[in-house]
Structures are given as C-alpha cells and as structure tokens.
Design a binder for these strands. Structure first.
Lengths: 306, 306
DNA sequence: ATTTATATACTCAAATTGAGCATATAGGTG
DNA sequence: CACCTATATGCTCAATTTGAGTATATAAAT
C-alpha cells in the first residue's frame, strides 16, 4: 500500500560553470570532459543557491560571480540503481578566470567541443553543410505527407543558414537528438550509429550544457552578465570578443561600442593598454551600480498614452 | 553517522494556473484564495511535466494548453513537521476558460486581488501614491549613507511611476517583502504590523504567484502564448484586452493591431462579430503553424557582415 | 617608409516605433 | 430620422533605433 511519508528521492545538483579563457568560452567538467560537476544537495545549506555556491567554490577555489537556476529534471529514466528517484536541479554559474597558464586548465573545455555547429565566429561551420544538413534532409524524407512537412518546418526554422539564430541552440540540440544524430546515454533509445561531430557526455549532461549556454546566449542581450566573466578592467575589444565567444558569432565593432556606451554600462578607468600592437585602447570598468538603477528588460508592447 | 542513501525528501508540485474570465486575469486557488493548488509528485509519471499536466487536468477538467516550469525551491524553512525536507517545483499553466457563469468561478481569483499596485489598466493605481510609496520612503530613511543610497536606487528603479515596467513585478514584490510591507507566512520574520493593500497567501504562495505572472508578462512579448488563453476565434479587440489584462496596462490600439498583423500570427476566419455595439469586428484565429516556422526570439546584438 | 593591426569618431539610409488623424459601421436616443 | 456614442479599421508622419559603412588615429612589425 502507498505510504503517506515521503517517497525516497535523492536531490542532485548539476552545475554549468562558465569561464572565458583566452577568448574561448569554457565549461568546467570532470572525467575528461564527459561529466558536468555534480553533487548531492547537503541538508545543511539554508537554500539551494547557497548549496551550489558553497559547493562550487570549494571545488574551484574561485568566487562565483553569478548563479542562476536552470531547470529541474525528474524524468523516469533518472533512477538510481537502488530504485529511488533522482531529482536533478541544474544551475548556471559564471566565474572569472585569468588567462590560462598552459594550453587550457585541466577540466575546462570549450563549449564548441560539444557543439561545433554552434561556433559561427569564423563564418558558417563546415560541419553544418557537410554532415548535419544532409542527414537532417534524410530524416525529413524518412516520412511522408504532413509529418514530412512538420519536420521540414522545424529544420528550416532552427537551422536556417541564411538567418542563423544563436539563441535556438537548445532546440537545435533537441532536434538533432530526435533525429538520432547525437547520442545520449541513459535514455532508452537505440544507440546512434554514426553521430554527427561533437563530443558526447554521460547521462543527459550535454543537454544540460546546451540549456545553460542557450540561457546565457539569451541573457547577455538584456542583462549585463558578461561582466561577471571579465576581469575588472577591460577594453571594448576584449568585451566584444567575450560576447562573440558566448554568442558564437561576429559582431559589428562600431555598433557594438555604440550600444555598450549609450547603455551607460561602463566607464573609463583613465588608463590605456600598452604593447598590444595597434593603437592602444582605453580601459573600462563595469558600472556595478547600474544593476540597481536600471533593472531593465526588453519591452516591445505598443503602450498607450502616458 | 551520515547514511549514503537518499535523504528523506518530499517533492511537491505547485501550479500557477491562469485563465481569462471576462477580460480579467485569474488564477486558480484553494482555501478561499489563500493557497495555490499543490500536490505530491506521484512516482508513476514519466516526467515532471506529465505529472503536472495529469494532475491539473484531473482537478480542473480542462485541457492545459501550455505548461512551463517556473522555479524550484528547497529553502530551509520548507520543512515538514516530520523533519524531512520539501522540494517544491512550481509550474505555470495556461488554460482556456469560457465566460463566467456568475460573477466568477469558485476558486478563480483575479491577479490584482493579490497585487493591486500592478494593475495600471485604468492609470496609476491610487494605492501606490497613497500607501506604498510613502512607506517605501520611510524604509529608505530608516538607514543612512550608502545603505540609504542603495535603497533609494532600488525603489526608484522598480517603482518609477513615470516609467513603469510591468516586468519587474517579482522584484517589486520582493522589495516590498524586504521592506516589511507584505507579510509572508512560514518565513522566520517578525510579523508585518500594517501590511499594504493586497491579499496575502499562505506559505510563499504569493511569491510563487508573482513569479508566474512576471514570467508570463515577459513571455507575451516574444512568444505567442496569449493565444493559449483565448477561445479559438477572437477579435483583435479581445486579443488586445487579453494582453492588457496580463500586462496590467493599456496598449495603443492601432499599433497593437499593426504589430499582431505584421507578425503574421493570426488569420481572418472570414466571419464577423454581431450585436456588440459599435462596428462589427472581423474574427481571427491563431496560426498555430507559425510556432514551428519561426522559433523566434528577440535579438539585439549588433551583428557583423553576413 | 610601408604594411598591418587595432581603436575610435562620425555619417547615412532603412527599418521600427510612438502617436495621432480620419473614416466606417454598428446600437441607442430624443 | 438625425445625432450621439462606441468600437473597428486604414493610413500618415516624425522621432528613434539599427545596420552598414567611411574616415582617421596610433601602435608594432618588416
């Protein structure tokens, strides 16, 4: 008979911890890149957020500038071998990293190792035309009539090379999963014979990673979160490269500066860079007060009279 | 000694279930408006979303058009009397309701019963100038120096009458809570002596409600979710009143139609309304295919050359 | 001296947005 | 019926915002 007490459930935390190292967007991983850092939710933390913060800072020895909840999963397949259910709560965290000592820090992996088709900084990734689109075409043609029309619309809406939308990253990943082009361990699905380029991860960690990056890509457009990834002083060029790294696409330099400056997000420190080759750049710092002043968001409704 | 098995945890689901009844945005409640519908997560559902959907549809006998996860709470104070921890996962759900039989359906309550300062459809709510702003002023003046400057900036950013931002609803609620102007049961805080107008709820349900409405207010601007609340055929006037009800502010009629039409979200049914007093209006229906075609989002980055 | 990089200032046309005028067509009223 | 009120719909126009350049400045490298 059903007990009225709590069902045995384990609460697990997953973190998508992001840093920029040498203009490359990186995520902290374990097991040679196959796992996101995860840990149990300890009972002695007052809140979930505090738990994540304490736990990540203990692991990385870096202060966590920004933490945001991503999503909670409790799917059926998420069961331990002991039979109890697992609830996974995932978080996005942003941290500041100095330039890498060597090539890259152990554990830090570039976003685009997992999603090579998402890096448009140097133009359209070849993997799209070469491997992904043809296979999506086959996937479309594997059915007929209305189902085919639906598949075609989804592919066209999410993979339009002539009008790429970097925010649709999660939806693209999910579509590739449905089309059987990316493997995902732990799900009951026939194994993917010939996956598309891009490293897989264990369990659904690649999906969680996609969720985190997609959220970040959306957020940098209306909230000043990039600054959590920058060192205190930076040039507008560095700031631009940071945004480009996250969004995965090149920006128009002059318009980027105009936007940043007229939003009043930064102020000059007075100092300049030196020895970078090319004209020295002014150094800026983020005006942290702005966060309090303008809790802005992107309105678009056609409002009426004042 | 600490066991390695799962800590006893109960998973609870909360729902912010929204419907429009007679142009009034309503939320389904229990206990005479003091509780959001909540229930345990049954182990026999494949996913959380399926659990919410089944459970809500069983309670309301209405199909749930749209479901979205809001937030997961596991705060310290969220403990049952039995000593185990409670994880609350809250959802936003949209459903279609016909016009009310009588005054309003039992259980359905207007948003603005809980947040009267958020309804700007008839201009600035008097409660703001009369009750809220003076008390926030006192709250600012209760401290000095930098703390006072910070409080002032937060109040000015979130309660600017001359530039009201309906999306900041959650932040405003949280500020009122911090300022001791709204009560919230279950939190260890001194009871609020003289709360500002607006019905309270048990536990943190009013906060969850604010989270849901704020999310909805943000979402209607870039996703066609309003249509989940409309009957299949509607006039542009009805659609506008629906958006106004959710956003809590009046819209410019001609610009609203322009926006809706040029986005290609709707198509004429061919029929017209009758007997409404005034010129008859064309009836429209939502073009559901559009969701597949354009998985749009609101870009704002200054992109570079194609 | 010239080339190559980067930084920064300024311009201009196209597109979007905010605000309003004008007209159409119903119901209600004296 | 003539007129008023209410809603719907079509269209215009100026202000702002955005996308895409051109032009110039200042460093390092050849």
């Amino acid at each position: 008979m059903p007990s009225t007490g709590p069902r045995p459930v384990a609460v697990e935390l997953n973190a998508v911890l992001v840093a920029l190292i040498d203009d490359e967007p990186q995520v902290l991983t374990l097991e040679d890149g196959a796992l996101l850092p995860s840990g149990p939710f300890e009972g002695d933390h007052p809140t979930l957020q505090a738990g994540v913060r304490a736990w990540v800072e203990r692991q990385t020895h870096h202060p966590l500038g920004y933490v945001e909840q991503l999503y909670t999963f409790a799917d059926r397949y998420r069961e331990s071998t002991m039979g109890y259910r697992i609830v996974s709560i995932s978080y996005l965290g942003l941290t500041r990293e100095r330039a890498a000592a060597g090539q890259h820090e152990p554990g830090w992996q570039s976003f685009y190792r997992y999603f090579p088709w998402e890096d448009w900084r140097e133009g359209p990734p070849k993997v799209l035309a070469r491997a992904i689109l043809p296979r999506l075409k086959s996937w479309i043609d594997a059915v007929t009539d209305d189902a085919r029309r639906q598949r075609r619309q989804r592919v066209e809406g999410n993979f339009d090379l002539s009008d790429w939308n970097e925010e649709l990253m999660l939806q693209r990943y999910e579509l590739l999963y449905e089309a059987g082009l990316v493997p995902e361990a732990g799900r009951r699905r026939k194994p993917v014979a010939d996956p598309v380029p891009g490293e897989p991860m264990h369990y659904d960690h690649r999906r969680i990673l996609a969720t985190g990056i997609a959220r970040l890509r959306a957020k940098i457009k209306y909230r000043p979160v990039v600054f959590e990834l920058m060192s205190p002083d930076f040039t507008l060029g560095q700031l631009q490269r940071a945004v480009e790294a996250l969004a995965g696409r090149p920006l128009h330099k002059q318009n980027f500066r105009r936007q940043v400056e007229q939003q009043g997000l930064v102020e000059e420190t007075g100092a300049m860079t030196a020895g970078t080759g090319g004209r020295p750049a002014k150094l800026f710092r983020f005006r942290r007060e702005i966060v309090l002043e303008r809790a802005v968001a992107g309105s678009k409704l056609p409002l009426a009279r004042s």
